[in-house]
Every structure is written in C-alpha cells, then in structure tokens.
Design a protein around this nucleic acid. Structure first.
Lengths: 149, 149
DNA sequence: TATTAAACGAGAATCATTATCCAAATGTCA
DNA sequence: TGACATTTGGATAATGATTCTCGTTTAATA
C-alpha cells in the first residue's frame, strides 16, 4: 500500500460506520482505487485496478459497491444522466438546470447568467471551445414529492 | 403536422443537402420529433413518438439517424460522456474541463473561476443545490493529434 | 465463539446501442 | 422520366454496460 492512503482509509472506515455499511476488504480496495485514480474512472477501470490486489473479485461486486457508495454519498458520479443518450436540437450556447432526482433537464438561456470568468490560466494546452453551466437541484415536482411523500 | 414546423422542416432539408445526407421520410419525422420535444429526449422516447406517425419504423433506424445527425452537427448530445458511469471521490464543489474528442475529464477548483451570477430568477420552484461549469474543448494530446494526424 | 444479517462470486438476465444483411427508397444522369 | 448505383430502412442478431439471482462466505454483535 502506498503512503498517503492511511488517512483516506481511516476516513473511509469512519464514513462506512456513519452510513451503517459493513467494512469489507473488497470495499476498502475498491474505494481506495477510486481515490487513488487521478482521473474520473469507470467501473471497468476500477475493476482492472482492484483485480491486481484481489484477483478473485467479481465485477458484480465492484458495481454493487460503487452503487452503494454513490447512494451513501461517499462517491459522486460525474454525469447525472449517463444511462441513456439525451438529445437537444438547440445548437445555440445555453445552460442546464438538472433535477438530480427525476433527471429532468431544463434549458437556461446563455443570456440568463453573467459570463463566467476564469481567475487564472487553464491547465496548459487545453483549448476551450465552449462552456456551459449545470445547475443541479430539484425540480418543482420533486420538491413537492419530497415534502409530501 | 402542427403549424410552426414548416420552417424547421425546410431548414432541416437544407441542412441535409449541405451535409450530403439523403432526404427520407423517416429522417424528417425523427428530426421533427426531436425539435418538437420540449425536453431533452432519449432515443427510446423519440422512437415512441415517431411510431405514432410511422408505425413500421425500426428502433435501429431511429438510432442510426440520431447518430448520423449528431455526426453532421444537426443535433447535439447533452452529456459528453453518457456511455459509461464515471466516478469521482472529490466531493468538494469544483468544475470540469472535458475533452470532447477523447472524453478525458480534468478537475478545475471551485476557486479557479469567479462565482456564477444569475441575471434573473430561475424558473419558479426549482431548488438549486449546486452548480458546476463544464468547459468543453480539446485536451493537449488531442490538439496535437489533430495537428499531426 | 455462535448466530444472524450482510456481502461475495459466478453467471444469467436485462437494457441500451451497434452491426449485419437483404429489401426498398433515393439521387443522378442519360 | 427510367435505369442504375448508392444509400437507407427493417428485422434481428450481437455487443457492451449494468443489474439480478442464488448459493456460499464473511462481518457484526452478543
């Protein structure tokens, strides 16, 4: 185990306890693999990584625990609607309101927000073509559903 | 056919001509179904809609043409990495640089941009919990690849 | 340490999407 | 306009990602 993971590990154990999740070796290795990954890994790439330490682990176990961690708030998914392709015919720059509960997406006109300003230079060499702001939250329907379940 | 689609339709025909795409009845109905949809439809929901006008259409035809439209730039997909779940352990608010070519995602600290300001109220009832800015473009590697293929 | 509930592993099942292959429609040019 | 070459459509098989099932193993706790 590399140095620097001890802290993450004890934090992880504490988070599991707080969330009422059993501590298993598989869970520790999976979670550490995600945090150790510099990028934004896919379940498959985590599986590849974890198998180096637990060759017998099942892909289903990786998926199951990733989902558990997402539900417990220990991990987050980058895109709130990765499951199915979503289309738009509006090619003009604009922004999105996304309901994290029902996955609804509502457009917000480019002119509805002040232009975004960078405080510093971007990582070298990245060529930005456009940007869009994603406001995450709850749509009116889901707000109502939560208040009166 | 509802009023107001004639304009979209003639525009569509012109875009197809410009892109060298054959004009078919299926393509027209599919494209109009996407533009008529107020939200951000999935292929499946477009299929359901289109079948009301062309009951014999195949789901594969819908997918094929959606892909064609995306490649020709007639449509856009909402999420640049919808294909596979991507994780992050960084729960602190931050932003993303996304390479539209190789799908790489790089974090940008919350403090790297000026706070986003709304010019007007959001659509009523939407409760915003957080926002993040997605800068789309090309990462250094892909910039280099394009220059020297 | 014995009991019980939760988690694991293997593989089947499901869902979204793409590929294949033949028939039908489109585009073009004489 | 008619014939031909090309593209597209429809049906269905195949693939890839993800979830489910079920019998076995492990963790939590008394």
């Amino acid at each position: 185990m590399q140095s620097g993971q001890e802290h993450t590990l004890s934090e992880f154990r504490q988070q599991c306890r707080a969330a009422g999740l059993s501590l298993t070796h598989q869970r520790e290795v999976i979670f550490l693999a995600v945090t150790a990954s510099k990028g934004h890994p896919s379940p498959e790439s985590i599986y590849d990584e974890v198998r180096r330490q637990i060759p017998s682990i099942s892909l289903a176990t990786v998926y199951k625990n990733i989902r558990t961690f997402l539900e417990a708030g220990l991990l987050r998914e980058v895109s709130p609607h990765h499951g199915s392709l979503r289309l738009e015919a509006n090619l003009i720059d604009h922004h999105h309101l996304v309901c994290t509960r029902c996955k609804a997406i509502v457009d917000l006109a480019e002119t509805d927000i002040e232009p975004v300003h960078l405080k510093r230079e971007l990582p070298s060499g990245f060529r930005v073509l456009r940007y869009s702001v994603e406001f995450q939250g709850l749509c009116p329907d889901c707000v109502a559903d939560i208040k009166t379940p």
